[in-house]
Amino acid sequence: KYSDMIVAAIQAEKNRAGSSRQSIQKYIKSHYKVGENADSQIKLSIKRLVTTGVLKQTKGVGASGSFRLA
């Protein structure tokens, strides 16, 4: 599940300011076997996790910027 992968990526990075979408994508692609549409799936999952309150956006708008666990 992409949401689990995103949470794992943010936990692994341990950046106080949060993790960027690009760094999350890079982590997921190197640690998991994902399909061609992974980028758009990650983007959608990040937006969903922010609206449900699992992630907090520290910089930027939408799916860009930095995110950390709430």
Rank of each mutant, 00 (worst) to 15 (best):
V61N: 11
I46S: 00
A70T: 07
S20E: 03
Q11E: 08
K33F: 07
Q11H: 13
D39T: 08
I42E: 00
K43C: 13
S66V: 13
K29D: 03
L55N: 00
N37H: 08
K33A: 11
S45A: 15
T52D: 10
T51M: 14
A63Q: 10
G35L: 15
G60E: 05
T58Q: 06
L49E: 01
N15A: 08
M5Q: 02
N37R: 08
T51Y: 10
K43Y: 14
I42R: 01
G62L: 05
Q57T: 07
V7R: 05
I28Q: 01
S30Y: 07
A17V: 08
A70R: 06
S45M: 14
A12T: 04
V34C: 06
Y27H: 03
I24Q: 00
L55R: 02
K1F: 09
K47Q: 13
R21V: 15
S30Q: 11
I46N: 00
A38Q: 04
S66E: 07
L55I: 09
A8R: 07
Q22H: 08
A70V: 09
V54G: 01
S20K: 04
A8M: 07
T52M: 14
S23C: 09
S20T: 14
V7W: 03
N15V: 05
T52N: 10
V50C: 15
A17G: 13
V61A: 12
Y32L: 03
I6R: 00
G35I: 04
I10S: 04
F67T: 02
L69A: 04
K26M: 10
K26D: 12
S40D: 12
E13M: 15
V50P: 00
A12P: 00
K14R: 10
L69R: 02
Y32I: 03
Q22T: 09
D39Q: 06
A38N: 03
K14E: 08
H31A: 04
R68V: 14
K14M: 08
G60S: 07
S3R: 11
A17M: 13
Q41E: 13
R48W: 15
K43G: 11
V50D: 02
L55Y: 01
S66I: 14
A63L: 11
K26G: 06
K26Y: 07
S40K: 15
A8G: 03
R21Q: 12
E13F: 09
G65E: 14
L55Q: 02
L49V: 00
I42K: 02
R48D: 07
V54Q: 04
K29M: 09
T58G: 07
K33C: 11
K59I: 08
I42W: 03
D4P: 06
I28R: 01
N15T: 06
K56L: 14
Q22P: 04
S66L: 15
R16Q: 10
V34W: 03
S45E: 15
T52Q: 13
A63G: 14
T58A: 07
Q25H: 08
D4H: 12
Q41W: 13
Q22R: 09
S3T: 13
L69Y: 06
V7H: 03
S64N: 13
L69D: 02
S45F: 10
I6H: 02
A38M: 07
L55M: 02
S40L: 13
R16F: 09
A63S: 12
L69T: 04
D4W: 14
R68D: 05
L44G: 06
K56F: 11
A38F: 11
V54P: 00
K47T: 08
K47H: 10
N37G: 08
G62V: 05
L44M: 11
Y27M: 01
S66N: 12
R68H: 09
I28K: 01
D4N: 07
S30T: 11
I24E: 00
N37E: 12
L44P: 01
S30F: 07
G62E: 06
I42P: 00
K56D: 05
A12M: 05
A8E: 10
K14F: 07
L44S: 08
R48K: 10
T51L: 14
Q11G: 06
G65S: 14
K29W: 05
K33G: 07
A8D: 05
T52G: 06
A17I: 08
T52F: 08
K1N: 12
I28P: 01
Y2P: 02
V50M: 04
S64K: 13
Q11W: 08
L44R: 15
A9Q: 01
G53W: 03
G65K: 14
E13N: 12
A17P: 03
S3I: 11
A8T: 06
G53M: 03
K33D: 12
A8I: 06
K33I: 11
A70L: 07
K29F: 09
A38D: 04
T51P: 00
F67R: 02
V61T: 10
V54F: 06
T58N: 07
A17L: 11
A38K: 04
S20G: 04
G35S: 08
S19P: 04
K47M: 13
V7G: 01
R16V: 11
K1V: 09
L44I: 11
S23Q: 09
K47W: 15
K26T: 09
G53Y: 02
D39L: 07
R21H: 11
L55D: 01
T58H: 07
R21L: 15
G60D: 05
G35D: 10
A8Y: 05
G35W: 04
H31P: 00
K1C: 15
A8C: 13
F67L: 08
S64E: 15
G62W: 07
G53F: 04
G53H: 04
N15R: 08
V50L: 11
A17C: 15
Y27T: 01
S23Y: 15
A9V: 02
K59S: 10
S45N: 13
I46K: 02
N15G: 09
N37F: 07
T58S: 09
M5I: 02
A12E: 04
A12I: 03
H31G: 01
I6C: 03
Q11P: 00
S40Y: 14
R16D: 10
A9S: 03
R68C: 12
N37A: 06
I28H: 00
S64L: 13
A8L: 05
S45C: 15
G53Q: 03
Q11F: 08
F67A: 03
I6A: 02
S23K: 05
Y27P: 00
M5Y: 07
L55C: 01
L55H: 00
L49R: 01
S64Q: 12
G65M: 14
R48I: 12
I42V: 05
M5E: 01
K43V: 13
A12H: 08
I6K: 15
A70S: 08
A38S: 06
S64A: 10
S3W: 06
I46T: 01
K26P: 00
I46Q: 00
G53P: 01
R48E: 11
K43T: 14
G35F: 04
S19H: 04
K33Y: 07
S66A: 10
V50F: 03
R21I: 15
I46W: 03
A38P: 04
N15D: 06
S3N: 10
G65Q: 13
I6S: 02
V61S: 12
S30I: 09
K14W: 07
K14C: 15
G53S: 02
S20H: 03
V54A: 04
G60N: 07
D4E: 13
K43M: 14
S64F: 09
K43H: 10
K26I: 09
Q57K: 11
R68Q: 13
V61I: 11
I6M: 00
R68K: 11
L55S: 01
D4Y: 13
S23H: 06
G35H: 06
L55P: 01
Q25W: 10
K43N: 15
Q11K: 13
